[in-house]
Amino acid sequence: MNHGPLIFLGVFFALALSWFGLVFESQLQLGNAQPTTNLVNAAQLYPQMRPGQARQGLDVYRSLGCAACHSQQIGQTGRTYDVALTDAGTNRSAVVDTLLKVKPDATAIEAQRLLEKPPATILKDVTRAAADAAVAKFEPTGAKVEVRVIPTGPDIARGWGKRRSVAEDFLFDQPAMLGSQRVGPDLADVGSRLPDANLHSLHLYDPQIVVSKSVMPPYRFLFEKRKIGREPSPDALKLAGKFAPEQGCEIVPTDEARQLVAYLLSLRADTAIFETPMTVARANVSTNAPAATNAPAAQTTNSVAK
């Protein structure tokens, strides 16, 4: 029997199986994904396209191969629940009574204090059933009490993000560089964790300025050393000690450095969407509040960003 065509067919079938199962099926599910309803901030869909500088910065990130040491995927291993009081309502005594029932180890004075400045966390780290039961107990008192869902996991505990990364986070990225190593910290949410552009510039120039025993190589070639003109440039790096250039010279970021920093600042993964149940503590949101999106942080900092 001529095995040749048989092997060919078998191999084609085997390869087609894994291609259909993994590549095609996921394309069917996620290929036409659109920005989703942001369930927290009513003003915007999620994700937003990165603004121009940040998009160019993504290209710099790709070209320098930053993904070789940095991942961009936060993981989650579980979740826990808090119960929070958002409005004490009018019947304060009933609320205090219920509070003492729900939290037996609290004293009356502690309970009163919780009512003074809502929102206040009444119960921490309880199961969903316990949280729901507590909320039910508060219904007749007229107070506004809510269950807060808090994702948990080592990455989240480390402060690398408030929730796990999902497909939606990478919707507009080309290429999506998830990374597979953590020689350096995870960068998925670095824009909210470190919103200071100046810090990023210093770190890129020489990581040892910021982290003394850093393994990250210095990216001095992203910066330009030039003579100080009549006045120092507004975006010159403020270097000291052995990192400072010689007298009369200043270090100025090139366009690539600026773009890369803009990209880093645009890396945020703190928006709650359907796939990532999580409660973001709501202040009474005014219309001017900065949106929690993948857009760059509000321009509250530094002279480097342009």
Binding site: L39, D132, V145, V147, V149, F274
Partner: peptide, 10 residues
């Protein structure tokens, strides 16, 4: 996932 989102209360 759906159940995780608040159902009861305001």
């Amino acid at each position: 996932v759906e159940d995780e989102w608040p159902k009861s209360g305001a």
